[in-house]
Amino acid sequence: MGIAIVITSGKGGVGKTTTSANIGTALALKGKRIALVDTDIGLRNLDVVMGLENRIIYDLVDVAHGQCRLHQALIKDKRFDELYLLPAAQTKDKDAIVPEQMEKIINELKQDFDYVLIDCPAGIEQGFKNAVAGADRAIVVTTPEISAVRDADRIIGLLEPYEIDQPKLVINRIRPKMMKQGDMLDVDEIVTILGIDLLGIVPDDEHVIKSTNQGEPAVLNPDTKAAIAYRNIARRILGDSVPLISLEEEKGVLSRVKRLLGFRS
C-alpha cells in the first residue's frame, strides 16, 4: 500500500506543478513506483512539464465516470518504467468530479504504487477539495513573497479538518542574494509564521524554466542547484522517520544560506 501526497499552495504560480514533476521524477530515480495525478481539470499542465502531452488518450474525468479503466488512462513516462501520469481533462471543469470519486481513484492507485503525488490546482474551491480528498500527506509550496505565504497559511488551515498528517513546507524560488540583503522574506521568518516543518528549500534557477519548456524535469540534470534541492526533498520524503538529512553537500550560495540558518547533520 502506497502513500498519497498532495502538493498544494493556494496561490497560483508558485511552482506546484514543477515541484510535483520534480519530486516525482526524483523519487523514480530512487527506484520507487510513482504515479503523478494532475487534478487541475481545465488547466492541465503536468503532462506538458513531463513532456507527455501528445500521449494522452483518456484522462482523470474519464476514469471517474467509468468511461475507461484506470490503467488505460495512465501514461508511462518516456524515461522511467516505474513513473506514470494520470492526466487531467482539458475540456471539462473542476466540477466534473467529486471528492468521493477522487478518493476511490487514489485508493486504487495506492495499491499499485509506492507514492501517489497529487498536483493540486490553485484556489480553495472544488478543485482543491477534490485534490485533497484521497491524500495521506500534504506538501505546501510557497515562495518568499508575502501573498504566497498568506495563502499557504490559509491552505494549512483548510487542511486541518482532513485526515492528513501535518503538512510539510517547501519554499520555492529562493534568491539567496536577495534574502541575504533582507529584500526577500527570510526562510526562518516564513517557517515561524506558518509553524510547520520545513521539507526543503529550492533556489530560483534558470535551468528549471529551460528544462520545463523542453518537457524534461529539471531534476534529471544533477548539475543544477534546483535539481539537487529537489533530490534532497525526495530523500527526505523517503527517510521519513529519520531526522532531516544534512544539506552540507549542497555547494555554493545555497549551503551558505543553510549554514546561516543553523542546518546541521
Binding site: 498568506r150 495563502d151 497559511d153 490559509r154 494549512i156 488551515g157 483548510l158 509564521i193 509553524g195
Partner: peptide
C-alpha cells in the same frame, strides 16, 4: 490561521499564534 474565525461569549485563551487573516 488565515481565514479561520474563533468566537466565544466568554474569555479566550489561545496557546498558539493568530496569523494574519485570522
Amino acid at each position: 490561521r488565515s481565514g479561520q474565525v474563533i468566537e466565544t461569549q466568554g474569555h479566550l485563551l489561545i496557546l498558539g499564534d493568530v496569523n494574519p487573516g485570522g
